[in-house]
Design a protein around this nucleic acid. Structure first.
Lengths: 231, 231
DNA sequence: CGGCATCCGTGACGATACTG
DNA sequence: CAGTATCGTCACGGATGCCG
């Protein structure tokens, strides 16, 4: 028995120490970074913006994060009011994590970060992981003008890297604005390549121009599909 | 001599290891966090948005950061193209750090973070450090509507916590939008308290309403002062 | 005095193994 | 499947020293 018996650590409360490192500044930005400034936290939010996810799915779409760090972050975020943990109905013995309204409010932060970081995507390193739904934020930026045409309409997007879907127009706060895989009910479907998706996000060309050039294939017959084609 | 001799770590190159931790994801947000996700980095940007600052001033306005981490971050940021180091003319034997255009482009990121973090400022902890110019971002948000009235006009702001100044309206990219202390040439001067400043930033009331209620004192005779008073 | 470099203790992180 | 346990390594924070 070489197992060392560890001290009970004198009254370690059952709850975690909770002494997360704070900047201790009376500044809105510093307060925000107190909550989401830890490594991986904002990327977890990015994943959860796609809707409720299970632990294993999160772990799969965040390559490099270790299991304990992911568990710890989720606990921190739950305590910080960013996510809630919900147990699925009995048939599926699993639980999912989903953003609260407060957590969903980080969408503009991620959008600003993504816009700023977009130029760094000119170089695609061989070690880079890719997931299709990571292209949702750039694409949403390009689709911002379609609020009137298809309010709340869902667009399936097919890239070489995979498939995801986005919700156009304004919608209820707290609702996921994009999701992994095809949507259960899509109003239109488009196919393009990742390069173009990023160029659209950078504003180098408009969605309408790309459609005209035949670089985006639009399918579907509903009003949203017609609007996307005719834009 | 109980001092352990540490291994030379075989051929540690003279340059810093440069193996900063990357998320290695082909995602704009992850790329942005690779560049500015380290602890303190975005707060250093917040300081430099107020204009060029010396090392010692940065250290003074970032309570809690250790000297080596600050030096290391500045070096990382210089290498990452966020800041440049400029040596002041001979009379002052010092150098200042200032944002590059790319670094200045982080303003929307900080603005989004500050907007999201603003609700957390309802509680003012006794351990919180405060600097007057940390209120510049919320105030700028409240002044966004004055672009036409005083394009590029400078407003001195006096709080109980200190004095700073902001530049209204659109201006040349890369120019500081706020600064510590009074401006060399101000077009108007206002006095209010921090609470009100935050409430304006949260959009709970407009600048015009606060002026009408007498909670903002506006002084000065130029067109910008008149516009602020009459708004 | 400004601008770091060095040393040290603590905690966060990442990988792997293991468990209910 | 969903984490917890353990461990080595590194980053952070504080103090101090050096050097122009």
């Amino acid at each position: 028995m070489s197992r060392l018996r560890r001290m009970p650590r004198q009254q370690q409360p059952a709850t975690r120490p909770v002494r997360r490192r704070s900047y201790d500044q009376f500044c809105a930005g510093a307060r925000a970074l107190d909550a989401v400034g830890d490594r991986w936290t904002l990327l977890i939010v990015r994943e959860l913006l796609a809707g409720p996810r299970r632990y294993t799915d999160l772990h799969a779409d965040l390559p490099g994060v270790s299991t304990d760090v992911l568990a710890s972050r989720l606990k921190d975020m739950e305590q910080g009011g960013l996510v809630t943990r919900r147990r699925l109905p009995p048939p599926a013995a699993a639980s999912v994590y989903e953003l609260t309204g407060r957590g969903h409010g980080l969408l503009p932060v991620l959008a600003a970060l993504a816009e700023w970081g977009a130029p760094a995507l000119v170089e695609r390193r061989p070690t880079d992981a890719v997931r299709a739904h990571w292209f949702a934020l750039p694409l949403l930026r390009a689709l911002e003008g379609f609020g009137g045409a298809g309010d709340g309409g869902v667009v399936d997007v097919r890239l070489d890297e995979g498939e995801f879907h986005v919700r156009t127009g304004r919608q209820a706060p707290g609702e996921p604005v994009y999701g992994d895989g095809p949507a259960v009910r899509a109003d239109a479907r488009i196919a393009l390549d990742a390069e173009l998706c990023l160029a659209l996000g950078r504003g180098e060309l408009t969605f309408a121009e790309a459609v005209k050039d035949g670089r985006i294939e639009v399918s579907g017959e509903g009003p949203l599909a017609v609007a996307l084609r005719g834009a």
